[in-house]
């Protein structure tokens, strides 16, 4: 609850907040705008603010030239696959930590957290070499597994904090009602935890989608997602700003929309429940 403000104070605060918020958002807006310019307008000096000829040709060029949809499909496969695997392994684990804790549960949870803090740099070499040996380099399965393992601790933590809020008595009531363990999870726990599971999925998709260390280092073409697609614009092609902007907008848009939906739950997931 904010402190009740006088009218003039409220006007001032609103103005300051909106100016700053707009400034923070501006690069994204500018990127979207540039994506609708011709290359000539994109470089024009002074820059053109909305007073240019709007065109969608960049989008079709981007698609024709670099096969945007193949990269986008890879992004979907990788983040979707990693998230699905994460749910499959994470929900049972989180159930266990929340409803059948042992005296080691706390240590196990903290240890899981600590695996997340392992810098990717530290294990780049063995993973790279291992993937060459296993034939997993630049394959969907290889990337899915690495994204899945990298985010598993966050998923378990998020699910755990949501499950913790469900009173154990309700699961016991189901047990009294004759539900088996499986039915207890499917009919009672899962439906009650839908909001929590949904935001866990969202955050995990976002993190996998934007992951830009492994996806850059372990892919070349076959399994390369949008992060690599954009990185290819750092070469001379980056000189085509309108096309770069169009490609970027396409790469960012889906996740931006998902992110806006999940912003409230995001805090909990990213801080491992330390801030709610």
């Amino acid at each position: 609850m904010a402190r009740r403000a006088t009218f003039s104070r409220r006007v001032t605060m609103t103005a300051i907040t909106w100016v700053l918020a707009f400034a923070i958002f501006f690069p994204i807006l500018w990127m979207i705008q540039t994506s609708f310019k011709s290359e000539l307008d994109a470089f024009a000096l002074p820059p053109k603010f909305f007073n240019f000829h709007w065109t969608t040709e960049n989008y079709s060029v981007v698609q024709d030239r670099s096969d945007y949809f193949r990269f986008a499909l890879n992004s979907i496969i990788l983040s979707g696959g990693a998230t699905l695997l994460g749910l499959l392994v994470g929900i049972p684990a989180a159930w266990s930590m929340a409803f059948a804790p042992t005296k080691n549960t706390k240590q196990v949870l903290l240890w899981m957290l600590s695996t997340k803090m392992m810098p990717a740099t530290g294990v780049l070499i063995p993973i790279y070499v291992l993937y060459q040996w296993l034939g997993w380099f630049d394959t969907h399965i290889g990337l899915i597994i690495i994204l899945f393992l990298g985010n598993l601790p966050i998923m378990i933590w998020m699910l755990y904090t949501y499950f913790k809020e469900i009173p154990g008595e309700i699961l016991e009531a189901a047990r009294m009602d004759g539900a088996t363990r499986w039915k207890e999870i499917v009919y009672v726990l899962a439906p009650m935890a839908v909001p929590g599971i949904a935001s866990t999925v969202l955050l995990n998709v976002i993190l996998s989608w934007n992951e830009a260390f492994w996806t850059l280092n372990l892919t070349t073409t076959t399994a390369a997602p949008l992060t690599a697609f954009i990185a290819s614009y750092s070469s001379p092609e980056g000189l085509f700003w309108a096309k770069l902007s169009a490609a970027s907008t396409l790469a960012v848009a889906p996740i931006l929309i998902l992110g806006w939906f999940s912003q409230k739950q995001l805090v909990r997931g990213l801080t491992f429940g330390a801030v709610k």
Partner: peptide, 30 residues
């Protein structure tokens, strides 16, 4: 600022949070 009693708090918050969802390669190149 966002915690103040202001008009349009929701949209302002959405604008502020947006860059976090932009993938690193995109924001760097833009």
């Amino acid at each position: 600022l966002l915690d103040q009693d202001i008009w349009g708090q929701g949209p302002a918050r959405i604008m502020v949070i947006a860059p976090f969802f932009v993938m690193a390669t995109v924001s760097a190149l833009i």
